[in-house]
Design a protein around this nucleic acid. Structure first.
Lengths: 152, 152
DNA sequence: CCTTGACCTTAACCTAGGTTGAGGTCTTAT
DNA sequence: ATAAGACCTCAACCTAGGTTAAGGTCAAGG
């Protein structure tokens, strides 16, 4: 008790500082079900060190454009308080890699279309690949309005 | 006058239908300064046909992840009511292509890091490229918290 | 003339991802 | 023992990008 504290558990401030996020962010993630936490006698949060990895994973996934809701889903396969097993991490990262690859593909396609469009008359040609078919569709009646599934 | 209306101007409903967006979206874009519009005697919106291209450009840019604020900025170089000149469009699309390429590069890098991380021990190694330096930085004192400029 | 549908404005609401502030409690160092 | 600083909850606020609703006006056809 008189020792310098081994810090095997972290207060919310320590966790936030170590993870590089704000305290309010940890509260927020907790509210969203992304991390859970135990309490001290005086009702203060006490995090196991593993929370730092979990937060790191969250930030990585966010960088890849994955929403917190999706991250929470993915985490359902990985109970907290321990590191993901090798197999679990492999599955997780394979899933995320696939999403990431989809986004990349979408953006590459868009980029190439933009390239081919420079100098083409700027969306004025009815068959410009960038100009989505909505206008032509309107001439044919009602129908789906969005080409891309909205997230792209 | 008795003719079937040439429709060189569009009502808000027509414009929305042709552009494939909701009427409320056009109001919103107008409020945000992305499109402007004249009024009929009875205070109803009358759009020139060119608005359709402008909306198409907005949607394309959004797909590329460009915010409405950035789009409005870009549009300042292209006064409304006419098509962008060849040079103007070239500049616009070159700028956007560059932003797009940056996003793509960021995502590719992330993907490769994720690949190299599968099986590496999942962010547990202090030198994992995915685990950003925040934790190590914290050991050295205060400093920048975000690796990526926030938008990636 | 008068009804119907499209249009008008303003304001409130929505999701995502958080941040900020008020008012009160815990912990820790002295 | 006490003061400072970290922590607590809850609610309000913020940006982005819109949608929805309420209450009132315009335009066209029968």
């Amino acid at each position: 008790m008189g020792e310098t504290r081994p810090r095997s558990v972290l207060s919310v401030g320590e966790a936030a500082r170590r993870a590089g996020v704000a305290v309010s962010t940890l509260h927020f993630y907790e509210a969203k079900g992304l991390i859970s936490v135990s309490r001290s006698g005086g009702n203060q949060r006490r995090y196991p060190r593993e929370v730092l990895r979990r937060i790191a994973v969250i930030r990585v996934a966010q960088r890849a454009g994955i929403s917190l809701a999706e991250i929470r889903e993915a985490f359902r396969a990985i109970p907290e308080g321990r590191a993901p097993s090798h197999a679990e991490w492999e599955r997780l990262s394979a899933d995320w890699r696939a999403m990431l690859q989809q986004r990349i593909d979408g953006l590459l396609q868009l980029r190439d279309q933009l390239d081919s469009c420079i100098g083409c008359g700027c969306l004025s040609l009815p068959d410009c690949p960038l100009r989505n078919p909505a206008d032509r569709m309107a001439q044919e009646g009602a129908g789906p309005r969005l080409l891309q599934p909205k997230g792209q």
